[in-house]
Amino acid sequence: MSPLLEAEQAVLGAVLLDPGQLRQLDWLTPEHFHRPVHRALFAALRHLHADRHPASSAEDSVPLSWVTDAVAEAGRHVRGLTASYAHSLISACPRPGHAPVYGRMVLEGAIHRSVTAHAIRLHQAARADALQGEVEAALRCADVLRDVLNDLARRWGTEPRPVDPGAPPTSGSPAPTPGWANVDEEEQVLLGVLAERPRSMDEVVGWLRPADFADPARGEIYRCLGALHHRGEPVDRITLLWEAQRRGLLADGTLSRDQISAICDGVGPGSAEWLGEQVMRSSVTRVAAASARSIRALAEDEALAPGRLINHALHALGPLDEVRIRWHAANGRPAPTPPAAPLPNGPPSAQVHAALARSAPRPISPPSAPSGSTASSAAVRPPSRGHG
Rank of each mutant, 00 (worst) to 15 (best):
L240D: 00
V144W: 09
A195F: 06
V148G: 08
G172T: 09
E6N: 13
L131P: 05
A369E: 05
V11H: 00
G219K: 00
L12K: 00
Q351V: 13
A83G: 12
T82A: 11
D26Q: 10
G388V: 09
P367H: 05
D26N: 08
S171T: 07
R39C: 01
D60N: 11
R324Y: 02
V267P: 04
Q132K: 13
P162L: 03
A272S: 03
T337V: 14
V323C: 02
G219P: 01
P366L: 11
R76Y: 03
L41I: 08
W66K: 01
D184E: 13
I295P: 04
A379Y: 11
L190I: 06
L320D: 01
H353T: 14
P347R: 15
S65E: 12
P366N: 12
A117T: 05
P165N: 09
Q245S: 14
P382Q: 09
H230W: 15
H118R: 13
A297G: 09
T116Y: 14
H118N: 15
L139V: 15
Q132C: 13
G97K: 04
S294R: 13
D69Y: 02
Q351Y: 13
R362W: 14
E233T: 11
A40D: 03
A357N: 05
A227S: 14
V287Q: 07
A50C: 14
L191W: 08
R385D: 10
P334M: 08
H353A: 15
A211E: 15
I111N: 11
W207A: 08
T239A: 01
A290D: 05
A340F: 12
H230D: 15
A316Q: 06
N150V: 14
F33C: 00
